[in-house]
Amino acid sequence: MTGVRTDTGTTGAMATAASADRIATPATAAAAPTARKRRRSLTDVLIAAWGVLGLLFLFFPVIVIIVYSFNTGRQLRSWDGFGFSSYENALSNPTIVATIQVSILAAAGSAVVSTILGSLAGVALARRPSARWVGWLTLLLGLIMVTPEIVNAVSLLPWFVDLSNTWNLSIFSIGQVRLIVAHSLFSCAVVTFIVRARMAGVDESLEEAAADLGAPPLRRFLDITFPLMRPAVISGALLAFTLSLDNTVLSSFVSVAGSTPWPVYVFASLRATLRPEIAAVSTLMLGLTLIALALVGLVLRRASKTTGDTNGGLAATLVG
């Protein structure tokens, strides 16, 4: 709090000093800064307070969940006492452990699928920005990003049933496969955009040179293209992993009994009673997501050092 205030204070003072420098006549320069400084610092304080309040608002329910994960009562909502019983109960409950395993496996699978598909498409889009198919592919990816999850979910359910029953493709009756396919759709669009953003600034001449020197396509890809796109691929994969880990709507429609992922288990227990175990596992999962996020940040930061990217670029990448 205090750190923020001093910081904005100095910035404000520096800005006023800078603007005072530019005012030509000394007479106005003497009067203007004092009046301006007071007004500016007041709005600065108000804006900073708004910002900090906004952050508290964003963190509020997350903190509630973390605190209530230490609730020793039977019901999540009503606080009973402080203790670690919910963590013990959660980790010794075979159903809960199974749902977490399903979630992590699906997340890993969908990360692999969407990273492969998205990286290839990202390279293609970055290298051929004016090709005829680019408009169509961009439209397709854009449609995926604006389609509400629920519409996506209700259309995938009959399709999977059709594929496994009418077309006899029994692979689509496996819950894990359905989850991976469903989660990969949005994620591969995200990965595509991240990789495209990374590769858009990279010159193609290196690959052309390698081709002229007789390097086969695979060799060219492994030696030149992949090292260039690695930061985007890693962060895309980790984002795909966390997106899949969080997915509730698609999963609740396509999952099959026996391969229920964690969020679907939570959603189903909403109708019965929410127990503190749910908060406990959620806190653990938050830790997992934070580790993934920190890795993304680290990778992007290291990459941005070489390309001179800023926080804005980082945010743009994470929003997709």
């Binding site: 329910p61 969020p263 939570v266 996020l293 926080n311």
Partner: peptide
């Protein structure tokens, strides 16, 4: 600081949507 605050905005965003909403249900 921008990087730090950005991370602070992203942490709740990457917390499970359903779980955050349950946080409000408790509240």
């Amino acid at each position: 600081r921008q990087g730090l605050v950005l991370a602070l905005v992203l942490i709740p965003y990457w917390t499970n949507f359903l779980v955050r909403t349950i946080g409000w249900q408790i509240t």
